Structure formats: structure tokens, C-alpha cells
Amino acid sequence: MSETIRKSRTATAALALAAGLVLALSTASAQVSPYGEKQMGEPASDQLPTVLKKATIVQKLNTQIPLDGQFVDDTGQTVRMGDYFGKRPAILSLVYYNCPMLCSEELDGLVSALKMVKFKPGRDFDVIVVSIDPSETPELAAQKKTFYLKRYGHPETANGWHFLTGGETAISALANATGFGYVRVPGPDGKMTQFAHASAIQLLTPDGRISQYYLGVEFSPNDLQLGLVEASDHKIGSPVDNILTYCYHYDPMLNRHSLIIARIVQLGCLVTLLCLGSFMIVMFRRDRKRAKTTSVPNWKNAIG
């Protein structure tokens, strides 16, 4: 009897969990909303949110970046972009330091890859990280440099890492030259504190022309090493597949999950429902088989 009660409770709990997952799945579907276009309860769309249509990467190979752009480095000194060119190639990364999502993953991926590259920053190439947020400060840039230099594990290469901040004009000119699209969006508090953008780094020749793009947040050490060799020889690479990773997984205006997160939630719910369904079918069949076995009288023992 206790075994039957236990199985009944297990089945009931499984059904309740399944019902909850169905509700979560329908809620996730209802909450998908391209930025400013869909409202709660409207059918979900597989189209990119409108804001992401401007957050693109246009590969402008062989384009000269503006070397006269003025920025402030992590020590608080005013510098020109051209100060970092003339001798060796560079890796350029456009991010913003207060980014709550993708930017740190991009820099983590870059540092992890560079650990396995035989070339060293400051000797063979430079790493130039530029904030796209004109409100960020050199103090914040210095904190980021300290963090990633420690993660890289070679403090002697500090002179090859440059974390810059700047004004809107210099940032926009650099972003336009590299084809880096970004859009300022409201944060959860309603203030304009976040940016929607895609993730990419650029390899630059010693004279500041774009040699190669690498998209995403993980980078092949072999590709980076070969790309640095080609960039140092002033060679221009080929366009790569434009498979973009976006730094925009949250709809701050509507305070709801965006299309990407909702799709992940839906997939997880479907997988869990399938597993629960399979478990319930096996348990029900096992219970029915046992019930049939126990319902047949043992005539031989009865006669004996």
C-alpha cells in the first residue's frame, strides 16, 4: 500500500511540475517583445528587436582608422590614437566598462586566447580597448586594465595594454571607421546607461588600417597569432561570416526578457516536459503491470 501511495504522489508531483512548466512556457512566449514593437500578450516574433538592426558590424577591411582622435588613457593622460601606431600591429576592442553582460565575456575571451599566443603585448603588438560610453572615466579604465592584466598573468607587458576613454566625437569617428554599430538604450532605472551592440575585435596594421575582424566572444589562439603576423606585414584579410553575438539580452523599456532569453527558456521547458512525459509513461506502465500481476489469484496455493 505504501508503495502505491508513494508512486501516486510522485505522479501527482510530476503532473504539477509539468503544468507549471507549461505555464512558464506560455508566459515566456507572451513576453517576447521586439523593442518598442510588441506588447504583452501579442504573438512572439523571430525578428530581431528594432534596436539591434542598428547594432551591427560592417566589415570595413583596409579602412584607415582616424589616428588624430583624442582620448584619455588609464593614467589620465590625453593621447592620440596615432600614438599607438607606427611600429607594430594592434588589437582593437570597442566595449564599455560598466557593461553588465557581453563586454566582459569578450575581454575574457581575448585574454584567454592571448595566453596561448607566443607574441607579447608591448613587444610584438598592442591591445587597445576603447569605451564607447563618453561618461566613463579614466579611473574606471585603470581598474579594468589592472583586472585584465592580472588575469593575463604577465605584469611586465603593462605598457602594451591601453584602456581608453573619450568624448562622443572621437568615439563616433572610430566606431564609424571600424563599422561598429551601437545604440544607447535605457537601463532598468529608466536612465540612458546601457548600449546595444555586437561583439567583435579588429586587428590593425602598424599604420592603422583594418586587417581582420574576429566576431563573438571566443577567439582561436592560432587565428589570432596568424592574424597578427599578417597584420604586421600590412596584409589585409578576408571578410568573415557575419554571425553576430549581441550585447542586448534584456528589454529595459518593457522590463521583460528579450527574444534570445525567451527562446532559451522555451527550449529548456520543452526538454524538461519531454523528460517528464517519458518518466510518467514508464511509471504508469510499470504500475499497470504490477496491478495486473497482484490481481491474479494464486490458485495453486489456494487449492493446497
Rank of each mutant, 00 (worst) to 15 (best):
I5F: 14
G227H: 02
P121V: 04
N301W: 05
L94F: 11
S112H: 08
I132M: 12
R288G: 02
T293R: 15
S26A: 14
S220T: 06
G41P: 04
A170P: 01
G36P: 00
Q212R: 13
S211Y: 07
L273R: 08
Y152M: 08
L276Q: 06
L274N: 02
A291T: 09
L48E: 10
V240Q: 10
Y148W: 15
G109Q: 07
E105T: 14
L114P: 01
L149V: 15
I210E: 04
T56H: 01
F195Y: 09
Y214G: 03
T157V: 07
L21Y: 04
K53C: 07
T178I: 00
K289V: 10
G76H: 04
D233T: 09
A170E: 06
T10E: 15
K235Y: 09
L203T: 02
S199T: 06
R123G: 01
L15S: 09
L102S: 15
A196L: 01
L17T: 12
H249T: 15
A198Y: 10
A24Q: 09
T193R: 00
L274Q: 03
A11T: 13
G20R: 01
Y35A: 06
L21E: 00
A14Y: 02
R256G: 06
G304E: 11
G304S: 11
P206V: 07
P49G: 11
F163L: 01
P239Y: 09
L92M: 12
S8Y: 13
S172M: 02
L17Q: 11
L48Q: 10
L226Q: 09
A13R: 11
L164H: 01
P134Y: 04
A291G: 08
G227K: 02
K87T: 08
D223A: 14
A18Q: 04
E168R: 11
M81S: 02
G268Y: 13
P206M: 05
D83I: 08
V72M: 10
T75S: 13
R285A: 12
T75D: 05
S8H: 13
Q202T: 08
R88M: 10
T169Y: 03
T27W: 11
T157I: 06
T294E: 09
S29I: 08
F85V: 05
L149R: 13
P134S: 12
D124G: 04
L149I: 15
A18T: 06
G36W: 00
L149W: 11
S33D: 07
L274D: 01
K289D: 10
I303T: 12
D126G: 03
R151H: 09
M192P: 06
G69M: 11
G160M: 01
I303Q: 08
I91H: 05
T293K: 15
L267R: 14
N62C: 07
A16S: 07
F180I: 00
N301L: 09
L67R: 04
